[in-house]
């Protein structure tokens, strides 16, 4: 596979709709190997929708999505299976299975994808990842016994248990206290450096974004406003970006006709 030359993620002309509402339009998004890319934007900017498309959870209305050079919209089940071995995802809510211990949750991807591993190997590899996220010794607990921050860290341990080349991290700092949140930022940087991961983080936390990102993609109302380095984004004179950076509320533009249609039409 030609991993080094082509971008790890290559999205072109992506368009997405929920019903009659266009959520993403004409989104181009490329991430190079070894990069930490932050997708930033306010609520409803389309960042979660973009993430769900990157993970293959939604089919795009238009456009192409390539991961490691593979078109994920057209790939067969076998190709997708191969691809999944190289991906890790840490969902915002953790998505741990409540009927399993923390240790079993973390070991799950190894059991699913690597039948050749012995029990001892699986135990060491999964518990090591719990150590990495500062949850050493917590493998016997049930998810319900963990705090919100611990659930998030356990989910991260599961996401990195197979040493993925590409890690997606949805809202790492949401709902965490500042210390845990800063620790996670630090960890993201170390994961990239030590395990050579390419990492895509979706966040609306500016401080965290500026600390970890090599490059930032700013989404606004379903379109990419800008993709550039942290400094360039900070210096941008784009009004919407400055609104985001300075937490200014945005002006809502009212189109009278469209507004009336939304309120009155049966099929709206």
């Amino acid at each position: 596979m030609n991993d080094t030359a082509a971008p790890l993620i290559d999205v072109q002309g992506l368009e997405a709709w929920y019903g009659k509402r266009r959520i993403l339009h004409d989104v181009d998004f490329r991430v190079e190997a070894g990069e930490i890319r932050v997708i930033m934007g306010g609520s409803g900017s389309g960042k979660s929708t973009l993430l769900r498309h990157l993970l293959g959870l939604h089919r795009p209305a238009r456009g192409s999505i390539r991961l490691f050079g593979t078109d994920i919209v057209r790939a067969g089940p076998r190709e997708l299976q191969q691809l999944r071995r190289r991906l890790g995802v840490s969902f915002q809510g953790g998505a741990l299975l409540t009927s399993m211990t923390v240790g079993e949750n973390v070991a799950l991807p190894l059991r699913e994808h690597h039948a050749e591993l012995s029990e001892n190997q699986i135990r060491i590899m999964s518990r090591m990842k719990l150590e990495v996220v500062n949850l050493g010794g917590f493998h016997d607990l049930m998810p319900s016994q963990l705090s919100g921050g611990m659930v998030k860290r356990a989910a991260l341990a599961r996401a990195i248990v197979m040493d993925p080349q590409l890690l997606f991290f949805d809202e790492p700092s949401a709902g965490l206290d500042p210390v845990v949140s800063a620790e996670l930022d630090e960890l993201i940087l170390r994961l990239r450096d030590a395990l050579r991961m390419t990492i895509v983080v979706v966040t609306h936390e500016l401080e965290s974004a500026f600390k970890i990102a090599d490059t930032i993609t700013v989404l606004d109302q379903g379109a990419v406003l800008m993709t550039d380095t942290v400094d360039a984004v900070r210096r941008s004179d784009n009004e919407r970006i400055q609104d985001l950076l300075n937490r200014r509320p945005r002006e809502v533009v009212v189109d009278t006709d469209a507004y009336l249609r939304r309120l009155t039409e049966e099929e709206a």
Binding site: L117, N120, Q121, I124, M125, M128, K129, V161, M162, D163, L195, R196
Partner: peptide, 13 residues
């Protein structure tokens, strides 16, 4: 030049 978790696991074993 690179070691993954399975390599580290071999050392731990």
């Amino acid at each position: 030049s690179y070691i993954d978790s399975s390599g580290i696991a071999a050392l731990v074993e």
